[in-house]
Design a protein around this nucleic acid. Structure first.
Lengths: 349, 349
DNA sequence: GTGAAAGCGCTAACAC
DNA sequence: GTGTTAGCGCTTTCAC
């Protein structure tokens, strides 16, 4: 039903090739009159190029697939990452597609065909940060899929943030303000389950501890034995804050809001009585106002992921060296407020 | 470079058609021996089907494009929506691709070709919730792109949540608990800029007001003249809470955290001294613990969006009646805690 | 300057 | 049961 080059050629009284050339910027040689006729017919018919046909001819797919877990209920896909990927891929005339590895048994060859068809791409970006099934690694190897892992600290073929640097950056900011009692808070993992968790939990704490020791300060890590769920975080925060001289600075991997609230109940105000640094993909404003944020630039991560994948596709190289992304400290500088992208007020929440 | 059916046929000593049929579940007629040889060669060579070629043959593109704004710095793409779209499209052997309408002048035909190639799809899902450029509507019309608008309340070809119902649901929950002084809080829009904002701002307030009046209660809307930025919300919350007998219930479109904090500073605890309802795409846990949430089921919105788009593509119908999605109240029931999907603790934040 | 021929990988239709 | 033919929309090559 869609318009084809052939139909344009008929309308413009020329050959299909002429149309193709004119529309692909190779029409310099043609008479202006010819070009005009072609462009006019193209516009009039509302012609849309058929990417599939072009890709078939070119022997490529024209797209890259972002592979995610089916288990991600929560957003594991920052808009910045999506944007960075999409825009850098578009510059190479590649589309970004989305796929998941379902739970079904992947032994049925018929089912595998269906899945591979959906994955059909020039390359794969794997967005599992942890807990990726062995089966997927097997599939990637078996089908020689050019793949890059995002947010994964592997030996090769990956792009990930330098989380030790992120931890250092956070601590150094507070140390630089002359604070001494600086706590590192994380409720996401406990000491007992830390090892099975994402490396960033350990690495950011490690960076914090390094910075503290370098400054001659005693690290102060607030971490329970096990993961603290959202509903328990306030109580836990209040408990440890009761027992101590309250911190002058807090580096929060998670639980920042419960610390803020527990401090407020004790009459201690963020920005006045203590400082906080959080980690995020963008500058953060908490309930008490903006806070210093160690920004993990997801946009750049996406761009670098694209670059790595393209290199992998081009070079057919077996293994690519890991790429690390440096985090950046974003201050809650009031002067910056204007530039800070506020949550767009007119969008639905 | 990728493996083709032809190569498999050579290895399996048969024709390309035999391979195609066996791999596409149409191989019942073939001798088991033949099928075995084909499947063996397929596996050994690591064959991946070429979706582009199949799509070319079928006269379709095999994918649907999700069109987003370049201006979305903040996540406007809930994971649930993505998941619902992706999964329902996969059931129809369609891939989901992403694209954006860039700011560049869209007058250059060469540039337009490039863009249309990236948008190349059987249909388009428009994810602009507001502020979509007129140029895009023109493009959709000119190129007869089968399009469905998501989260937009239009006259036709759209799928969006019933936000009046959402507002009602929130208020009725608190009214049902026997509360009287129930405030509706929104800092995202002010009275003066409400009209240019997303319809959900007005609609949820409208639903709240309806429910209040139905119950013989006085609506109490907290809204400033203009948008209140994140850094000012706490101060604003403290100001209006100072002047009044504090509310027993709060319906928060936005600013929930600043209200929670302001109340805490006054010694009023969420769940003990007052109740709150918020709107989200999933059950929400605030710093004080879980709260009742009016859940806008984005997953279902995605599924319905797919259904509508497929119908639009199939039927070539000019205009499809709008589809509304009903919100659901999710209680902060402790019994439900187990089922509540906590933010996965092992992911990077 | 323009167009005819060939072929990309795949599959519907039909022949044997 | 298996293979042959033709053709999807597009572009590379090369002839006129």
């Amino acid at each position: 039903m869609p318009v084809t080059l052939k139909q344009i050629a008929e309308q413009a009284n020329c050959s299909v090739m002429t149309v193709s050339n004119v529309l692909n910027n190779k029409g310099d040689m043609y008479r202006p009159e010819m070009r005009r006729r072609v462009l006019e017919a193209t516009k009039r018919l509302g012609y849309r190029p058929n990417a599939a046909a072009r890709a078939t001819r070119a022997g490529r797919c024209g797209n890259v697939t972002l592979l995610s877990s089916v288990h991600d209920e929560q957003s594991n896909l920052p808009t910045g990452l999506l944007g960075g990927l999409q825009e850098s891929l578009a510059q190479h005339d590649l589309r970004l597609s989305f796929a998941r590895l379902p739970d079904e048994k992947l032994t049925d060859p018929q089912y595998m065909m269906k899945l591979l068809r959906l994955w059909s791409a020039d390359g794969i970006l794997v967005n599992y940060t942890h807990g990726y099934p062995l089966r997927m690694i097997e599939l990637i190897e078996q089908y020689r899929l050019p793949a890059i892992w995002l947010n994964c600290r592997l030996e090769y073929d990956c792009v990930f943030p330098d989380d030790v640097a992120a931890g250092r950056l956070a601590a150094e900011h507070l140390i630089g303000k002359g604070l001494n009692r600086i706590a590192f808070v994380d409720y996401a993992a406990g000491w007992k389950d830390l090892d099975q968790m994402h490396y960033s939990l350990k690495d950011r704490q490690e960076g914090y501890e390094q910075a503290m020791r370098d400054a001659g300060l005693e690290p102060w890590v607030v971490r329970e034995d096990y993961h603290v769920s959202g509903s328990d975080r306030l109580a836990v925060s209040q408990r440890w804050l009761e027992d101590c001289d309250p911190p002058q600075g807090v580096v929060a991997y998670s639980g920042a809001q419960s610390v803020e609230l527990a401090m407020a109940v004790r009459g201690r105000q963020l920005g006045r009585d203590y400082d906080m640094v959080v980690f995020a993909d963008r500058r953060i404003t908490m309930a008490s106002g903006p806070v210093a944020t160690v920004v993990i630039p997801q946009w750049r991560l996406g761009e670098q992921g694209t670059a790595a994948l393209l290199q992998k596709i081009e070079s057919q190289q077996a293994r690519l060296a890991p790429v690390t992304i440096q985090p950046e400290l974003a201050l809650p500088d009031p002067e910056d407020e204007g530039r800070q992208k506020e949550k767009d007020p007119s969008r639905p929440s």
